[in-house]
Each structure stands twice: as structure tokens, then as C-alpha cells.
Design a protein around this nucleic acid. Structure first.
Lengths: 252, 252
DNA sequence: AAGTGGTCTAGACCACTAC
DNA sequence: TAGTGGTCTAGACCACTTA
């Protein structure tokens, strides 16, 4: 493996930004994989030819973006999506009284399709490019209250099958990381009032054409490329979508 | 004026956290007001008895929380809400094609009420405490698409009147800061599908009882206290509510 | 030219984890 | 005890703004 040391591609003007980009490059080529320790600060400082303080500033930003995680006395790790740690960063549905619960996920459809122009545009791929398309029903407190339609470019998830998808142990984003080396680093979501389709109405136990919350999500990898398109319908009769601008999610 | 120098209240264990808390205290007692320059890093380092590097780390965090703003060569300023800078941090409604526009705001009601138990709980005040309550209609592209019901505790906004509210020059949050020294530092929002009331349906040009997006927002000050309660109804036929987890709002 | 914040250094010392 | 990250220092030099 060729280690990344040169840093001419994204100047940015400052040393620590260059170091940060070099580290992102090392992460995207999988030199350091999800969950692994990266070299110590001292070694990285030597490798990139900067002082420890400068190296630390680069790591500071990567930690702030949830790409790395520091553990005093242990080392710095490549952040891994885990049900018990980062799940609620991406799952923002809460019961009206504020209680958060893990959803029970059931895969109810899996197929291969071609990208429509709208979805191709969102994913930054060609019209008609091949996609995996599957549907999950999510239950909270033993009642299905949301349905996810998820689409993944085949080129990014080579060899994905319904059975490997079903047999995953942790969250979907953990699975992307583990099986395909894709680190979801952020999402862009657009919310609006939508209408349930006929097939969905049965699953959500709503009248056909009922109003639900519609969420269109594009997930981005650490290299800023779109990796997943998701359309979600939520029954918000008893649940809220939470959108806070503060770190400390004020517990009402 | 007594300057804040002692830092025993919130130990946190580290020097820079103490400095940060001391600076937040100075901000809440209005030693430095919105828009003003704060003393230079060198002077602040002397005042708090720390090195410049440590002082900088405290300011780094305050800048990351949008409380301070640095300007190289000029100084560090207390962030001021401005229509042209921070407005879209709190106004997250975008046309379906992604275009952002400033809303045209019209005050359509102003009164004084007593807090209901539900709203008192959200604002952390007593049941029945006095509130200012007013309603704004917001138009985008020359059509009213959202209605804000806003409630403010009288104790935090002493002497607020309909005319001072109407005659404000900039945004509402700029007004809070300018006229009452209240710095909105973050919000907590809960979204769901709601129904328009009869009076709203006329303004929004929707049928009575139509489904709209309902947003319940509590705004918090830099000292973590709730300062505003807001209930918004949005017609999302042509607009989306944007909720991104990334800094760089990916422009679709 | 003087003053401000922005970057970078080289090292000390502390706190935590593992063995 | 050795190795890791966490904090803090004291100062150099650069880039920007105003006068």
C-alpha cells in the first residue's frame, strides 16, 4: 500500500488544512478502516512533517465532523457507525413526549432499478444508471410509523444482495462502512407534507391518500460524494421529527 | 461596571473552559454588547491570567457556536443577527428548486396573554405568567406560505409594544438583541403534520382543515435559557423545510 | 507603521489506559 | 512503567486592516 504523504492537491493555504485533506485521502483509500486506530499523533506529525500542535488542529476538525474519535490513553480511531452511539444523529424521530426508541426494521422489498432523472441528479450519476432499491418498514413502540425507500448506486455497493442486507448485524450505515468501505459523514434532508401511496397506507394503517411527513434525504460520504438516496414517509400523529441547531439536544 | 475575572462557578476542570464560561458571563451581563468589539486576545489573556493559546481555544469554541466572530486585522466581535448574514441559519424554508428568498413579513395580530401550562413548560416559566403573543404572516415570491405564532415572556422583553415591534429595522432576532440584550444562540424544533385553523386557511389560501407542516420552536439564549416559543404552519406545496447535518449546505 | 487575529512551533506537564 | 491523547505555555512569524 502506498501511504499518502504528499499534499499538493488541496492547498487551502495552510499546513493543517493540507494535513487534514491528506488524512481524508488516506481514509477514502481505506488506508485506515472503520473502527481501526490511526497512528499516534507523534508518528503522524513526523509523517506529514509538521509539529504536533499543527497535526492536532487537523485532527480536531476531523473529530468535530465525526470522522475520527479520540480516546485519551488509547489512541485516535476511525469513527464507526454504531447503533448505540451515532444512531440518533441520523434518526431524528421522537415520540411527542420526547422519548427516543430504536426502531424495529423490516425489509419488505428489494429490487434492482434504473435511476430516474430526478434521482440520478440527486446522486450525481447518469440517468438510467443501475440502482439497488429497497424498502424498510420501521416500527416504534410496536407500531409501524415510517417507511423508507432507499436507493444505492450499484457501482458503490458492488455485489449487494438481499440476503447480505438482511443479515447485517448493526445499522445500515454501519453495514455500508463494514461491507463497502463507505463512510456516511452527513446528510441533506428536505421535509414537506406528502401523501401515502395505496401500498403504504395499508402498512401504516392510514386511509389511502392520508397526509404524512415526507423526507427526502441524500447521504454524503467523507469525500463529499452522494452515496444514498432515501425517501421517507412518516406518520406524525404521535411522533415528531426533531431539528435542533444546538449540540446539547435540550430535553424538554 | 464590575468586570468578570473570577472563574470558580463552572470549573469544568480545564482553564480554557473556565475562560469560556467567564466570557459567556461577561456577555450575559452585557459587558460586551451585540456588534461590539471585545478586547484583544493579548488583553484578555492578561485579564484571565492565561497564555494566548489558551485564551484562543476559549474563543475558538465561542466562534464555533456563532456567539463571537473573528475578523483578522480588526478584532473579535459579539455576533449580531443580521438579515444578510445569519438569517438563513434560522429560516430553513426553501423553494422546491432550492432557491432561497427573504420572506416579506406582515404583523397581523398582537396581544398580551397568559401562558398555558404546555407553553409555560416549554419556556420554563410559571403557568399563567404573562406573555406577549403576536402573529406574523410570511410571504415568499409574493404569496403567503407560512404563519408564525410567537410568544415572549414579558419579564424578558419589558416594555415591548406593537409599534416598537413594527418599527424594527432588521430581523426579529436582531431586534431582541438590540432592544432587550437577548442573544438567541440556538433553537430546538419539532416538526409534524398539522391542520390549519379556519383563520389561517384564509390567509394561506387553503381549504379549511388542510394539512400543513407544523413546526414548534423554542429559541434559547447564550445562557441556555428559553426566550421564545413559536408555532409555525407552512404550506409545503411548493416549498421544503431543509434540515442538513453538514456545514456546507450541499446545493442541489 | 502599529495593532489585530491566524498559523506554527517545540516542549512541558497531566490524565488515562494497558501491561 | 510506557504509551497515548489533553492541556498549557511562550514566543515567532505571517496576513490583514486602519491610519
Amino acid at each position: 500500500m502506498s501511504t499518502v504523504t504528499a499534499m499538493p492537491t488541496s492547498p487551502g493555504g495552510t499546513r493543517y488544512k493540507e494535513v487534514k485533506e491528506a488524512m481524508l485521502a488516506a481514509l477514502t483509500v481505506q488506508e485506515w478502516k472503520g473502527g481501526e486506530v490511526i497512528p499516534s499523533e507523534k508518528k503522524l506529525a513526523e509523517r506529514f512533517g509538521v509539529s504536533i500542535g499543527t497535526l492536532r488542529k487537523a485532527i480536531d476538525e476531523l473529530c468535530a465532523e465525526n470522522i475520527l474519535i479520540r480516546h485519551q490513553g488509547l489512541g485516535t480511531f476511525v469513527a464507526m457507525h454504531r447503533r448505540d452511539r451515532h444512531f440518533f444523529r441520523y434518526f431524528r424521530v421522537t415520540r411527542r413526549d420526547g422519548e427516543r426508541t430504536y426502531p424495529v426494521v423490516t425489509l419488505i422489498d428489494f429490487r434492482r432499478v434504473k435511476a430516474s432523472p430526478a434521482i440520478a441528479a440527486r446522486l450525481g450519476i447518469d440517468d438510467g444508471a443501475r440502482l439497488y432499491s429497497f424498502v424498510n418498514a420501521l416500527a416504534l413502540h410496536e407500531k409501524v410509523i415510517m417507511i423508507d425507500h432507499i436507493m444505492l448506486p450499484e457501482t458503490l455497493f458492488p455485489g449487494l444482495t438481499e440476503s447480505t442486507l438482511r443479515s447485517r448485524q448493526d445499522t445500515l450505515y454501519n453495514f455500508y462502512q463494514d461491507a463497502f468501505g463507505i463512510n456516511v459523514a452527513g446528510t441533506d434532508e428536505r421535509l414537506r407534507v406528502g401523501r401515502v401511496s395505496e401500498s403504504e397506507s395499508a402498512i401504516l394503517q392510514l386511509d389511502a391518500g392520508s397526509a404524512v411527513m415526507e423526507v427526502e434525504r441524500v447521504a454524503y460520504s467523507i469525500n463529499q460524494k452522494p452515496v444514498e438516496y432515501r425517501l421517507t414517509h412518516i406518520n406524525t400523529e404521535e411522533y415528531d421529527f426533531v431539528a435542533s441547531t444546538m449540540k446539547n439536544g435540550a430535553v424538554t
